[in-house]
């Protein structure tokens, strides 16, 4: 039972980070970033390159872990900026921006996979364990360092981002832009620079999740597809643009996946997830927290 909860929390924290990136981008600049899978893999490869370099240079221990996490986030942030400069800046004030940017990000993710294939080959790349190896046992259950670290790092990072959004000048600027782009322009907030900043931040969150997921799976050119689809579904169920909604939805989806995998069958996981999300959307078409859309209109 406890193990199910733990694995649910691990899944929720990893997918939740990707989902929040998608949700955040949509709410502030009105762009559905489906290149999030590409950004995800970019972080993984950046971390891998760093790890290769660091291990050959003899770096190990906490320094290696911090380095891997940092480079993962940096790599994804840079990829986010690249996506923004291709799919956001040129299209931003043209008509039909939403559909066009959606197609543009899809095209980027098509190109991205091939670029990774060309540069890194189709093999799976492992990342060194960031949180060390070992388990804490309590009662008849236990939690590995990796799981514990994933949960803690993801929650701390998420907390920091939320805190920053709530209290700082840039955060105020982003929230203002989410609610009223015209009003934001009038007080001197540039949609373009703020949009790029948003893309970098959601990229960094995705990169973090990429490094965390690579603790369980590997980094490969197509490893971004699964997190992208699950992240999409979570951000939909949570209501695009609502951070609390997304967190709740991530918890629900993580729990559903863990419970199904444990008590039913692994092959049923996709259908259970899909069914839950469809049910949520049928009863609340704007997702769990999608009140923002209404306010915007």
């Amino acid at each position: 039972m406890i193990e199910v909860v733990i694995s649910a929390a691990v899944l929720a924290s990893m997918y939740g980070l990707v989902a929040i990136g998608i949700s955040f981008t949509w709410a502030s600049i009105g762009m559905l970033n489906l290149a999030q899978g590409f950004i995800f893999t970019a972080g993984g490869y950046a971390a891998w390159v760093f790890a290769e370099f660091a291990i050959s240079a003899g770096i190990s221990g906490p320094l290696l872990s911090v380095g891997v996490l940092t480079f993962g986030m940096l790599g994804s942030a840079v990829a986010g900026l690249a996506v923004g400069s291709i799919a956001f800046l040129p299209l931003q004030d043209r008509d039909n921006f939403r559909t066009r940017s959606l197609i543009a990000t899809l095209a980027i993710s098509l190109i991205g996979t091939q670029v990774w294939l060309i540069f890194f080959g189709p093999q799976n790349k492992p990342l060194p364990p960031v949180f060390g190896e070992g388990r804490i046992e309590f009662g008849n259950a236990g939690i590995s360092y990796g799981q514990l670290g994933t949960i803690i790092v993801a929650s701390v990072m998420l907390g920091l981002v939320i805190l920053w959004m709530r209290s700082s000048r840039r955060g105020l600027q982003m929230r203002a832009m989410m609610m009223n782009p015209l009003g934001a322009a009038v007080v001197g907030v540039s949609v373009r620079t703020t949009g790029m900043r948003v893309l970098a931040i959601s990229g960094a969150l995705t990169g973090l999740s990429s490094v965390l997921l690579a603790q369980i799976f590997f980094v490969s050119p197509t490893s971004g597809v699964q997190p992208l689809t699950v992240g999409l579904i979570i951000s939909l169920a949570g209501g695009l643009g609502s951070i609390p909604g997304t967190v709740i939805a991530a918890g629900l989806v993580g729990l559903a996946e863990a419970v199904t995998a444990r008590y039913l069958q692994q092959s049923l996981v996709p259908f259970v997830l899909f069914g839950i999300v469809v049910l949520i959307l049928i009863f609340r078409p704007r997702g769990l927290g999608g009140l923002l859309e209404d306010v915007r209109e």
């Binding site: 559905l32 959606l102 579904i233 996709p270 259908f271 469809v278 078409p285």
Partner: peptide, 22 residues
């Protein structure tokens, strides 16, 4: 019937991946 255009697009985008897993 219930969902807006882009929401529906996102929902169905994941379908292939789920089928593959199945």
């Amino acid at each position: 019937r219930r969902l807006d255009g882009l929401y529906y697009a996102l929902l169905t985008l994941g379908l292939s991946e789920f089928m593959r897993n199945f």
